[in-house]
Structures are given as C-alpha cells and as structure tokens.
Computed example of a mutant assay.
Amino acid sequence: MILDRFRIDGQVAVVTGAGRGLGAAIAVAFAEAGADVVIAARTESQLDEVAERVAAAGKRAHTVAADLSDPDATAALAATAVDQFGRLDIVVNNVGGAMPCPLLDTTPDALVQAFNFNVTNAHALIRAAVPRIIDTAGGGSIVNITSTMGRLPGRAFAAYGTAKAALAHYTRLAALDLNPRIRVNAIAPGSILTSALEIVASNDAMRTELEAKTPLHTLGDPEDIAAAALYLVSPAGRYVTGKVLEPDGGLIAPNLDLPIPDL
C-alpha cells in the first residue's frame, strides 16, 4: 500500500517552535503517522495543548519550554529525545523569524540576530542531533523551515529574507555532507494561516489582496505544511535530499506589498 510509505511508526522526532502554528501541526501529524515527539517552544501552556493532541493520536510527547533563541538550549533537544525515548530519527527546525523592517532601518545587529535565530540555531541542533541519529537509529531525516521570502524580493524583508535564503542553501550544503545516511530538506511556505498572519487575515481588504495575488487564490493551512514535512521525513520521501519544497500556492512574486515608499 502506497499509504504505508507515509508511516513513521516507532520513530522519534524533535520539532522546534511547536507550541502553535506550523510546528504544532507538524508535531501532531508526526504523531498521527506513528512517531513520538519532543516539542519545544517558549510557552509551556501552548506546548501542553499540543501534547494533549499528540496523546489523542496515541503517541507520547515530551515538552520543553525554553528560549530557543539560545543555540545551546536548542542543541540540548537532541539529547533530550534520546534520554526520553531512547532514539532520535527526525529533526524539524521550525523556530525562526524576524520582523519586517525597511532596509536603511535594519541595523547590522538586526541582520546578525536574524541569521543566528534562523540559521545558527538550526545548525546547533543538527550538529548535536546527527551523532545521536546515527547511533540510535542508523539514519534519519532533517527538515528546515525556510520561507518564500527567501527566494522572492520584497521590501522590508532584508533581514528575514536573507536569513531564510541562507537556511535554504545551508540545507543543500548539509545534505551533501550528511549523505547517504541522513537526508536534509527544507520547506519554503507561502502565506499560511497562522498567528503570524492574524492581523492580515482579519482585515478583509488585505486578505482579499493576498488571495488575489496567490495563483491558487487561497491561503495555506498549517496542515498543508505538516503534510509536506511528513512526506519528506517518511519513506515516501526516501529519494529526496538537498531540496527545497515550495507549498506556496504557486507564488512567483510577493502577494502583499508593504507600504514602504520609493527612495
């Protein structure tokens, strides 16, 4: 059965930024497909809600409330997975982000912070996870969450877009280094209905613009990204590595112009 290739029974995954949005949807999807999960985010109450959804799917969740802007805290999740569940097979680097800011208002420190939050943290966890994946599972899969703004030019996204573009290419480089035992891929979502889009989605005019400028004329759902992640980490994606999957509704240009004037 082809659907059996999407099962990850008996595997253990670490998902960062899993208190809500994409991370929560990915963690629950993995549980529904048979995996136990270590879920990490800043807010414990949100993690507890996700853990309840994992338990409802018949699997176990271990929650870690931590400041994941700290690479050491992020890297520690690999050891936590092995301590709690005895193995580690899958890592999803979902935590990240940076606020939009006009180019000339973006300080060098802001650029460094965006790089560290989106790329350095992912590298710290991967570096800690790889030996444990090899030792406990023999091989596995890593997924990095980038963004459509890592490939499309948009005003006010110098820090965020640059960091996400770096993470996309880091994915290709890491895949080459970790072949053939660990596959490394990325997902570059478009406009997904998470808390990050709440303000936009609640404004009828802005939502209409977003949808009109998206070739599929609709916004994405967190489960769209969760399905992509499950494909990449499961046996269904066994022949895919070093790639960036783009579930973005077909975007070839940004679908919302921020009101940044010409220079």
Rank of each mutant, 00 (worst) to 15 (best):
V130H: 00
L103E: 08
E32N: 06
G97S: 13
Y239V: 00
V38A: 03
A158I: 06
L68H: 15
V112A: 13
R172M: 13
R172A: 10
E209Y: 12
A35T: 02
G34D: 08
A27V: 13
G96D: 08
T43Y: 09
I2K: 11
A229L: 10
F6K: 01
G19K: 14
G242R: 06
D4L: 08
P108N: 15
D36Y: 02
I192L: 02
Y239K: 01
L176W: 14
A24G: 08
C101Q: 15
F115P: 03
V95T: 10
G139I: 14
T208I: 14
A137N: 02
S45P: 10
A186Q: 00
I252F: 15
V54H: 07
A236W: 04
A76M: 08
D48I: 15
A168Q: 01
H123W: 09
M206T: 07
G34Y: 03
I126E: 04
I225E: 01
Q11C: 04
A75I: 14
L152E: 03
L173K: 10
L167Q: 00
D72P: 12
P222I: 13
A78S: 10
V130Y: 09
A56N: 14
A229I: 05
T208S: 14
S202A: 09
L178V: 15
Y170V: 00
A51W: 01
G97H: 06
T136H: 08
P261T: 13
I142N: 01
I260C: 11
G96L: 01
L219W: 10
D4N: 13
P108F: 09
P254Y: 06
M206F: 12
G140W: 00
I39E: 01
G154V: 08
T136N: 08
L197V: 13
A61E: 07
A57C: 14
T241A: 13
D248Q: 06
R87F: 10
A201C: 14
D177N: 11
N94W: 01
C101V: 14
T162M: 08
R132M: 14
V15Q: 05
T80F: 12
A31Y: 03
P71W: 02
V240Q: 03
Q113L: 14
P180I: 02
T74R: 05
L103W: 13
P102T: 04
I142D: 01
A165D: 05
L178W: 05
T162V: 09
T74A: 12
V15K: 00
I134W: 04
H169P: 07
P247E: 06
A226H: 09
L263I: 12
S202P: 04
V200M: 12
V15F: 00
I260G: 04
F6M: 04
I126M: 12
V64M: 11
D4C: 03
L263R: 11
N94D: 04
V95M: 03
A124L: 03
N185G: 00
A253R: 09
A24N: 09
P100K: 10
E211R: 06
M1T: 13
S234T: 03
I134H: 04
T43D: 13
L167G: 00
A128V: 09
S234G: 05
A29N: 08
R151Y: 02
Q84A: 15
G17N: 03
T241V: 01
G23L: 02
D221P: 09
A253V: 06
I142H: 01
R20T: 12
T120V: 12
V184Y: 00
A196L: 11
L167K: 02
A201K: 13
A57M: 09
P189H: 01
A159P: 08
A175P: 05
V15C: 08
